[in-house]
Amino acid sequence: MKYNLKDKSFIGDYTLHINVTSKMWAIVIMPIQIRVDNTHGFVHIHFSHKGKHHKIGKSNFDEIYEIIVNHVENNEIISKKKIWGELS
């Protein structure tokens, strides 16, 4: 049976939230409020709540999740520019 997924991981000062349903997925980094998701038919990143979206090059959920986890684990302070670069 295939389940929807909702997961919360605590990494240093950040919390990583994953939400996967049959229709869409989203990864949110809190409290910095960065969101990567595939709504609107393409994968993109938001740098603030209600902020505009920016297209990224990567589209595979697992690959994107791994990049984000590695970034959060290896950087005490998340750089929005750097993380966008890694995902592009």
Partner: peptide
């Protein structure tokens, strides 16, 4: 904030799909 947004998306999704099963996890280090 973005977490409220996730809750709204889930609320809307599960309103249309109440029988779907969700695996909810929390990972702590």
């Amino acid at each position: 904030d973005m977490l409220n947004e996730l809750d709204l998306e889930n609320w809307e999704h599960y309103s249309s799909n109440p029988e779907e099963l969700l695996q909810e996890g929390k990972t702590v280090f």
